[in-house]
Design a protein around this nucleic acid. Structure first.
Lengths: 102, 102
DNA sequence: TGACTATATACCAATAATGACATATCTTAT
DNA sequence: ATAAGATATGTCATTATTGGTATATAGTCA
């Protein structure tokens, strides 16, 4: 994972410290980010499969359309907590969550 | 639930939608908590397997001993983000995380 | 026993995540 | 092309999470 990947992530709003720090933490950091992206993608799939708009989903989650959009975009301001709680609210089981991670 | 039963219950003053919503939220909440507890338990197992003290692990995570204790205790002030980032920092793979969830 | 190390609990100031809102951009149907 | 609906982006006050600190409570061994 070199500069190309880093550029892509930074384009999405992710920020890293020094190059040295980036290289040292990259493996763990990358795994975390990829995890979030996998959940984001799945959330969007499930929402579309259920024929819900972002606004409708937001209402179910007691959140807002803009936050749903950020969730699905893998925005760094969205936590794993929110992503996972959203998937659970859409009826995902633990096994299904596990499959998303694998 | 059949509509006849629902009508009878609603006649007695039960508000079906609210109760249903409450039950759904409880289920989701319970799943979320169980998820965290599974991760907590695993974090402690991994730490012990690696013969690390909470203080040593905290240093690795750039956190504190007290927070590691709370992580392992399943304290509600600990987020899924922190738990998962901690497991990743201890070298867990996505597949391993998935196994914890299943 | 007492000294020592590990873990648990409580508090809090600093930081990060959140919902709400405004607004922009994309889609789609007419 | 344009109106309408859906999605994306930016900002911000409120709320939740965090690391640090202090202190309490085990557990261990001489």
């Amino acid at each position: 994972m070199k500069s190309a990947k880093r550029r892509r992530l930074e384009a999405r709003g992710w920020r890293f410290g020094t190059v040295q720090e980036f290289l040292n933490l990259s493996e763990e950091e990358a795994a975390y980010i990829e995890l979030k992206l996998a959940l984001s993608k799945n959330l969007q799939e499930v929402r579309r499969k259920k024929k819900l708009t972002q606004h409708e989903l937001a209402r179910r989650l007691k959140s807002s359309q803009s936050r749903v959009a950020k969730m699905e975009a893998g925005d760094p301001s969205v936590s794993l907590d929110l992503l996972i709680r959203s998937l659970l609210a859409l009826g995902a089981s633990r096994k299904q969550l596990a499959q998303i991670l694998s």
